[in-house]
């Protein structure tokens, strides 16, 4: 299935370390490998400190890699690249941030906030063209042209996040890195922003890298999910596969932590706690390997056998249910 899909972004053997001034550098991302296909929503899920944002920032060329490469449409975009390529990457990969209040210039009106990218890249013929583009971008995200003259503080959190999205959309990007775009929003607003992101994806054929810590949100929006723990991707699978057949104990622990809105089920639920140090370290070093087409798990040969047995049992059970 994945064969006929175009790979839009490819992350190959990426390590990102932060120098701690003389001390041993801190490895925030360890040997990350994944592809994002055109038109899909790919989610990176993990706790704070897992390195998910660091990967997102590396794709944006903000963090430097200490090892590995990143390719966008087959072209290398990590390390030293030509100035034209750099501009092209900056334009076609856009970012949506977590806190819409902090990511907008509070002294600039919405018209300027949204046009900023256009100014930087001279992506407009004349003033009329620029205004038309701003109006269109605002309309796309469900705001009105008359909002142009307002300032960020005059908007609610959800509306501000819409401005943040409009600002990214006006550059006509191909890939959007959305870093926890709804975590700072109220429950009732979250649904609106998720719906909007889904709508834009369909209308504009966008591709998303969605970074989040909450599996329940991610399930609704993603096609594929990568679970990351302490800088290491421990499992990648299509959304339904990951939820139905989670294999890595950390994925299971994340799943068990999602609070379900049902008291009869939620009250007796036991949380599974994953402790990396209690893992059985015997056997050879684990690697990220494929257990079913498209389903990868970080394991060594001994663990692979365990996971395989578990997976077969689950599949047998489902087959007998049908």
């Amino acid at each position: 299935m994945s064969n006929n899909k175009e790979v839009l972004l490819s992350v190959r053997g990426v390590d990102i370390s932060f120098d701690k001034g003389g001390k041993k550098p801190f490895r925030a991302v360890k040997n990350a490998n994944f592809d994002i296909y055109r038109g899909e929503t790919f989610s990176l899920v993990g706790e704070s400190g897992s390195g998910k944002t660091t990967i997102g920032r590396a794709i944006m060329r903000i963090n430097e890699l200490s090892k590995g490469e990143i390719y966008f449409k087959g072209k290398k975009i990590s390390g030293k690249i030509s100035k034209e390529d750099d501009r092209e990457v900056i334009r076609s990969i856009q970012m949506i941030f977590q806190d819409p209040a902090a990511s907008l210039n509070e002294r600039a009106n919405i018209e300027y906030c949204v046009s900023e990218g256009l100014y930087n890249f001279h992506l407009y013929k004349d003033e009329k063209d620029r205004i038309a583009k701003v109006d269109k971008a605002l309309e796309d995200v469900g705001l009105l042209p008359e909002h142009k003259s307002r300032y960020p503080h005059e908007f609610s959190g959800g509306q501000r996040q819409r401005v943040g999205i409009a600002r990214a959309m006006i550059m006509e990007p191909e890939l959007i890195v959305a870093d926890e775009p709804i975590s700072a929003l109220d429950v009732s607003i979250r649904a609106q922003v998720l719906n909007l992101m889904n709508k834009l994806k369909e209308e504009k054929g966008l591709t998303y890298l969605f970074i989040a810590h909450d599996l329940s949100v991610v399930r609704f929006i993603s096609d594929r999910i990568a679970v990351i723990h302490l800088g290491r991707i421990v499992e990648i699978a299509e959304t339904e596969e990951l939820f139905k057949h989670p294999l890595h104990p950390y994925t299971i622990s994340l799943l068990s932590a999602v609070p379900m809105p049902d008291p009869q089920i939620e009250k007796p639920k036991k949380h599974v706690v994953y402790d990396e140090s209690k893992r059985d370290h015997s056997g050879e070093k684990p690697i990220l390997q494929e257990i079913r087409p498209g389903h990868l798990v970080f394991a060594n040969d001994r663990e692979m056998k365990e996971y395989e047995a578990k997976l077969q049992e689950m599949e047998k059970l489902e087959a007998s249910d049908k």
Partner: peptide
């Protein structure tokens, strides 16, 4: 949770992403 009566409680419950069906819009307030 099982017998909510106020439309606001209905709206809050139905906008939960846990209840979202893929391919359909989440309901929102």
């Amino acid at each position: 949770f099982y017998e909510p009566a106020h439309p606001y409680t209905w709206a809050l419950l139905s906008s939960l992403p846990q209840l979202g069906v893929k391919g359909q819009d989440l309901s929102y307030i």
